[in-house]
Design a binder for these strands. Structure first.
Lengths: 137, 137
DNA sequence: CTAATCTGTAATGATTAGTATTACAGTACG
DNA sequence: CGTACTGTAATACTAATCATTACAGATTAG
């Protein structure tokens, strides 16, 4: 799994703590320790799904578009990393009963895992993450 | 995540269907569509944890050491891929409250996710996987 | 209107993770 | 002995991830 998921969480948490003004991709990228273009790519996704708004030009940047409680980690996972759990199986041998069926079986298992994980992630909203970040300063 | 986890499941399922004789790493690798050395590396792990036995030399190979119901997918995940969910965060900025705390928060969240996934995977034993593989031949 | 400051995105290059391959030592058997 | 295996290290290849460069478009300040 790439780190788009964690970068999205990082970005949203950052924005959550600056609710009154625009934050630039430079500021967020400095906080997260990655390249600004990378952050803009992630933010672009988040914008497309309506979690944040953006504004170009001087004084522009990004800002939260929803209430912190309305965005949970499962929403974020789905748009950044859905399907990432399943390791890609090489084409296995159709002549072997195991090879011929394993891929199907593994797919269904991993789908189940992801779904199950979803139930867990739904319980974490950005509000909760913000609270955790604030807890130990 | 690399595919050691799925290769381990594949190998064990293969062995489960050959309970009376040794299977070689070549046979398993052909079924799984990967290189024999790779399979031997995975099998080496499984052996170290007592799931299978091996024998060198002519007529040697690998064979299941336990009852199929005694091995569940969580056991296998733990020895092949524990911690693999967490994407590695780059060193973030200690001067920013988000950067300084996000890593700790994400770690605890991912630990929770993995633990939760464990509850799900514990319900799948190799026996169940074998049944699924046999279902549609 | 022009320069400065942003987002948006494509394209390229670097780095790292994952995998295949080679090589060879060690064990067992006939 | 020679053959057929496991066990493992070392190297090479490939694919995924990430950084960087480049530049077009939007917005604002002066």
């Amino acid at each position: 799994m790439n780190s788009d998921f964690t970068l999205a969480i990082h970005s949203l948490t950052f924005l959550a703590l600056q609710p009154d003004r625009m934050s630039t991709s430079d500021a967020i990228s400095e906080s997260a320790g990655v390249h600004p273009v990378r952050i803009r790519k992630v933010l672009s996704l988040l914008k497309k799904h309506g979690f944040i708004k953006s504004k170009e030009g001087t004084g522009g940047g990004f800002i939260f578009a929803l209430d912190l409680c309305e965005v949970n980690l499962w929403d974020i996972y789905k748009i950044t990393s859905e399907g990432a759990l399943q390791p890609k199986c090489p084409e296995s041998n159709e002549k072997c009963i195991v090879g011929a069926n394993m891929q199907r079986v593994l797919c269904s298992i991993f789908l189940g895992v992801e779904e199950h994980m979803g139930e867990y992630l739904k319980d974490y909203t950005i509000k909760e993450v913000v609270d955790l970040v604030n807890k130990r300063q």
